[in-house]
């Protein structure tokens, strides 16, 4: 997992990776988030991002996650968002993405 940015911590377990999103998902995080997810999709077939500690969320970061879900749909890889924090949920509500978040959240 050397390709992943230090912003995102991960654990490797037989093709599955779990990424912990940083607390701060503001605009500056969007670029490293894209790169980290690209790297994850390159190496793993099952990707879970933990969003439990997200205290700040931006449209840019949410948009990256939307692109990730579309890529997962397209490529047949698994992708899920685990334990989205209230802040992330609120921002998704504001953006009209509540249904999307619900669909991609880990049940």
């Amino acid at each position: 997992m050397a390709d992943l940015l230090p912003l995102i911590h991960s654990e490797d377990d037989a093709g599955k990776v779990t990424l912990s999103l940083p607390d701060d998902l503001d605009l500056p995080v969007a670029v490293p988030l894209v790169e980290s997810l690209r790297a994850a999709f390159n190496e793993y077939s099952d990707i879970v991002v933990i969003a439990a500690t997200v205290e700040r969320a931006s449209t840019a970061a949410v948009q990256v996650l939307v692109a990730a879900t579309r890529h997962a749909d397209f490529s047949g890889q698994r992708f899920a968002i685990a334990a989205p924090s209230d802040v992330l949920t609120d921002v998704c509500n504001d953006l009209g993405l509540a249904g999307w978040l619900e669909e991609w959240s880990l049940k």
């Binding site: 670029v31 997810l37 948009q63 990730a68 953006l95």
Partner: peptide
Amino acid sequence: CDAGLVPSLYDMEGESLYL
């Protein structure tokens, strides 16, 4: 929200808005 113009994860620029 219309995400129809969001490019692929590999083509998108993180700080651009497509929504």
